[in-house]
Design a protein around this nucleic acid. Structure first.
Lengths: 230, 230
DNA sequence: TGGGCTTTGTGAACGTGTGCACGAATGCCT
DNA sequence: AGGCATTCGTGCACACGTTCACAAAGCCCA
């Protein structure tokens, strides 16, 4: 605490890249690599080396000029900055297809986000076991959040139920939400929300495909579009 | 009618919001709303009204001053710009937890992205039926892509298999990839790749939680601080 | 010990995205 | 018809993000 750990604000763009660096650094460490240059890390991450250096500089001056960064030490610093020095239990709302897949996906707990519980409104789903966790009724949500000190909620419900799920999560005391439903959630300003929307991603790809096809309206089967230019 | 609607480039940030507007406009249309103002649409989308107007202005001047935008017409224009005037069949690589959830998630086909096939390397998974689609062996990938004219591939494999999956998709002729695996894919420049990474999203939330907690240091389990220099 | 080589950290330039503010266009009402 | 209220479309300024380029700082070796 004597260290100048002031309220440095790290740019959003950097925060979103730190997890990528972290995973790559972990892999390098596992392969026995002691030291890594910004150039090499940039290559692995698919970005510019200057960007890597600037990103890492927000954590502090942890590199050695002429040498690079000590991998293990950098892993430690990135983990600390991301708050990964301890586990963050998460609760999943919705035990449908997606909820099941998320619960069944082992990598959750391994990466420091153990599943504190899975809840659903549907009584017929309550009691079944997903990924080693028994599905509980959503009325137990508040209790789960309180006893397991959950800060992060995951919404894996259909869109129609998502706002209700968000309201309940907030009421239960959750302060961060990862939303897989295709709706815009309304939550208090203090709540951090991130959205993962499959349909949006596909439609963005569709845009680029359409563009690639030269904007030709009809890509009807039988006549592959061919750009005249270039 | 000026036909020079061609090589307008729409900013990435705008492209990523258009799908959101589109869904909201569809809902409004279903509720019988004929006309909508940028103000109202902005409210629904959770963004600034000026941003909505600027975004929509990239499509052309489709609003009426003093009135707003005709909902159905705008839906048509957004769909056209996003290339949603026809279906884009997708192929899913990986029939594990996630692949099953994606295939089972009905909203895929409904939104114009019918599942042309699901493939896996694991012979024991081949033959099972997911969401009405039979799982086929990955060696059939090229044939599926060719016969069903698939442009978009979805990677739902474990990280270790993702690059191989990407290589096969590219070789088969796919030009856009939606990657759910936690690795940075290496693909030819012309291939459009979008990544959805659960771990990254959770770690970003973790950062904000850690920050919220005042950066309080909880004891670090197994990470020894620096080797020497302070 | 000093010179040369490597790589970091960062100032500065450039590019992209956001939001305000206002003119321009349109419908409605008298 | 004319005036008024409304809402779009966009120029402009500012904030944020990216990349370049280079001095500073370290290591290695003669």
């Amino acid at each position: 605490m004597s260290t100048d750990r002031n309220r440095r604000r790290i740019p959003d763009a950097t925060v979103s890249r730190l997890p990528v660096y972290l995973r790559l650094l972990g892999e390098q460490s596992a392969e026995g690599v002691d030291s890594i240059s910004s150039e090499r890390l940039a290559e692995l991450a698919g970005v510019n080396a200057a960007k890597v250096r600037k990103d890492l500089s927000y954590l502090g001056s942890y590199g050695t000029r002429g040498v690079g960064y000590e991998v293990d030490y950098l892993v430690y610093q990135v983990r600390r900055e991301l708050g990964l020095t301890h586990d963050w239990p998460v609760v999943i709302v919705g035990a449908g297809n997606l909820g099941q897949a998320l619960a069944g996906y082992g990598g959750f707990g391994e990466r420091g986000f153990p599943i504190a519980g899975v809840v659903d409104v549907d009584a017929s789903k309550v009691g079944s076991v997903l990924g080693g966790v028994r599905v509980r009724h959503i009325d137990e949500l508040a209790q789960i959040v309180a006893t397991k000190r959950v800060n992060i909620g995951v919404i894996a419900t259909p869109g129609a139920a998502a706002q209700e799920a968000a309201d309940r999560l907030v009421a239960a005391g959750v302060t961060s939400i990862l939303n897989f439903a295709s709706i815009v959630l309304t939550v208090p300003r203090a709540i951090e929300v991130r959205k993962v929307d499959l349909a949006v991603e596909l439609q963005i790809l569709s845009y680029h495909e359409q563009r690639r096809a030269g904007g030709a309206i009809h890509a009807v089967p039988g006549s592959p579009p061919r750009s005249a230019t270039a």
